Amino acid sequence: MANNKSAEKRIRTNERNRLQNLLYKSSVRTLTKKFLKDLEVYKESKTPEQKEKLTKMLGAVYSLIDKGTKRNVFHPNTAARKKAQLSASLKSV
């Protein structure tokens, strides 16, 4: 365990940051999975409503990735790679 006050504070700070990072990372993974699932549905029957839903969902994922990058949860190149892969998956349909 910690031997001094500053080490105790670092433990508390690290735990707080770990939970915040976990929130961003899990949210991005969840939204990405939902996006890819809806993309598969869109491939089956291409309707304008589904296309609109996909573009809104893509914007939400982009927003969450950008917020995570701003708070140093994701490295900027990792965020760019994730966004490029999502965009490419939508364009390939």
Rank of each mutant, 00 (worst) to 15 (best):
P76K: 14
A80I: 07
E40G: 06
Q85A: 15
N3F: 02
D38L: 06
E8Q: 12
K9S: 04
K70R: 11
E40S: 13
N77F: 02
K83E: 04
T30C: 00
L19Q: 11
V73W: 01
Q20L: 13
L23S: 07
S92W: 11
T55R: 06
K82G: 02
R71T: 14
T30Y: 11
S89E: 14
K70S: 13
N17G: 01
M57S: 09
R16G: 01
N21T: 10
G68D: 12
H75W: 00
S45M: 05
K46D: 05
S92F: 04
V61G: 01
V41L: 13
L58Y: 05
R12H: 07
E8D: 09
Y42F: 15
R12P: 00
R10W: 00
L22M: 08
N77Y: 09
K37Y: 09
K43D: 07
A7T: 04
L31F: 11
K83C: 03
A60H: 12
Q50V: 01
A2T: 08
H75V: 14
L39W: 10
I11H: 02
G68P: 08
N17I: 08
V93G: 12
K91I: 10
T69W: 00
S89Y: 10
T32S: 14
K34Y: 13
K70M: 15
P76R: 11
G59H: 06
I11G: 07
V93N: 11
S89I: 01
V61A: 05
S6P: 00
L39N: 04
A7M: 03
R71K: 15
S26E: 15
V73G: 09
R71F: 15
G68Q: 01
A88C: 03
K53R: 07
L86P: 01
K91E: 08
A88D: 03
K5F: 15
A7W: 00
D38F: 04
N77G: 05
K33S: 13
K46Y: 03
K91C: 07
A80C: 05
E44I: 06
L22S: 10
E52G: 00
A60N: 12
N4D: 07
R12F: 00
A88Y: 07
S45K: 09
I11C: 01
D38P: 00
L23C: 06
A80E: 12
D38S: 02
A80R: 10
E52K: 03
